[in-house]
Amino acid sequence: MAGSNPNAKPMNLTLKVWRQKNRNSEGKIVDYQVKDISPDMSFLEMLDVLNEDLLHRGEEPVAFDHDCREGICGSCNLFINGRAHGPEKGTTTCQLHMRKFSDGDTITIEPWRANSFPVNKDLSVDRSAFDRIIQAGGYISINTGGTPDANEIPIPKEISDRAFEAATCIGCGACVAACKNASAMLFVSAKVSQLALLPQGHVERKSRVENMVAQMDKEGFGACTNIGSCAAECPVGISLENIAILNREFLAAKATSNNLS
């Protein structure tokens, strides 16, 4: 309180930050010192302090993606001390607070690393591959208007809740970043299983999974080998069960769809 802990002492930290001019240049780790960091700061507020400091010294601030700073937009994406979104389970970078660190710590900060997520600059990466996967089929093909009454199709609460759990994916890419194989299966499976669980999604379930998996492969993501890092690092707790559902949907679609290509 300023925040919660009146006894919390300000911290001095060493940051090892990945700096990279743009997509085509080589990057490297650069060391910075930050002083008087309050434990009640968020991780990004700590980076704000660094950036203001750099700016005053006439140096270019560290570019990083962020927006809502409340853990829902999925913009923030830092690989902190060898972990996607840092050490706290179920937490996005923006919701990570400095009370998880101690005075004198050295913190390594890197961008997501996957060939499908090229670096824009410093810590900012291009995750448009995710958008293209959704464009390949992550929707229900209905136009605006002409839809039946919302209560026309009852959906068991349990099914609806499971679909919701899958639908909470924020598209941050931590699954890809954490995966040894840079696989996007958890992301893809969350959308596939959300729509496969709901009756509204049944109409297109075969073509959807076929097209989304094809696009996922085309984007150059690695293949899933069931390591489980993705689910362990997912800030919103998307479960591995979704990947099983994706596998099942894929197998069933390939075995039974009329698609010969």
Binding site: P154, Q194, Q200
Partner: peptide, 22 residues
């Protein structure tokens, strides 16, 4: 009222009661 119909048809998983209705 149309918005809710539209969203449900899109696969928006609104909260439901045990009977399956919204």
């Amino acid at each position: 009222v149309n918005i809710i119909d539209q969203c449900v048809a899109q696969g928006v998983p609104f909260a439901r009661e045990y009977g399956g209705l919204l």
